[in-house]
Computed example of a mutant assay.
Amino acid sequence: MESLPNYVSITFGVTVLLAVMLFYRATGRSNRFLAVIVVWIVAQAILSLSGFYTAAPAGSPRFGLVILPPLLTVITLFATKAGHRFLDRLDRPTLTIFHSIRILVELVLFWLFLHRAVPQLMTFEGRNFDILSGLTAPIVYYFAFVRKSMSRTALIGWNVICLGLVIFIAVNGLLSAPTPLQQFAFEQPNIALQYFPFVLLPAVLVPLVILAHLASLRQLQANQRH
């Protein structure tokens, strides 16, 4: 990734910082959350900068260390009472505006495509429509929490659609990476996510985006029952 312009990595680094700050704010400035996410980022930085992922032989399960811990964390939050308390205390307006960071993510993915580090299908010129989530987030925030004119049903629908968009492109990203699971993009595979700081996309940003949607949906459904 030596040929990649510095502005790509810097923009992505700023995006991660903004995402962590916004989610930290949504937690009510929970120091426990901040400590966990900082340790996780440092751990992924050490692993990726050491070549742990790029040096892995074909078929190695090493990249599972990026995906499985966040997945298990989300499952634990929804399966335990302590997790429920954490989710129900999250600030839904902040969780909504949080999704604006997806605009920057899509810009970075496009730059990575231009430098042959990800396939076109991972950009808004391909199969990635996730930029719509980022573009609509400020609009939804305004009408739902400033004007208070957006219905609960519309909010649920927006969260479900945007959740589907991020899961769809995450699966496409996995299936275009150079692993035994690869199904497409053989001419230009998804290699960027093996390197720092872009490993933080599947390790941090995607899990936080998914968690933000799921927590919002949980709160909306709880309010509907009451």
Rank of each mutant, 00 (worst) to 15 (best):
L18V: 06
I161M: 07
T54L: 14
P70K: 08
V199D: 05
C162Q: 05
I161A: 13
F113C: 06
L90F: 09
Q188W: 06
E106M: 09
A56P: 15
T153A: 11
S176G: 02
I101N: 03
I67S: 08
F186C: 13
A117Q: 15
A154N: 12
V171A: 15
I161W: 05
V105I: 11
Q194Y: 14
G59S: 02
R225Q: 09
L132Y: 04
N159W: 08
L200S: 11
S100W: 04
N128H: 03
H99W: 02
A154Q: 05
N172M: 15
F23C: 09
Y7Q: 01
V20Q: 05
T27L: 00
L47W: 14
T136I: 08
I103K: 04
V66F: 10
I169C: 12
G28P: 13
T179K: 01
V204T: 01
F33A: 03
R32A: 07
A58G: 04
P202M: 03
V146R: 12
F86D: 01
G173E: 01
M122R: 07
L163T: 13
F52V: 15
I161L: 10
T179R: 03
A82E: 08
P180V: 06
P207F: 00
L201G: 06
I169K: 14
F124M: 12
P189Q: 04
S30P: 10
V140F: 09
L4K: 01
P119S: 13
L72Y: 08
S60F: 07
L109A: 08
R25E: 11
E187W: 14
V206K: 10
F86K: 08
G64L: 02
K81F: 03
D130T: 02
V199F: 10
A79I: 02
P197F: 13
H115C: 07
V36C: 03
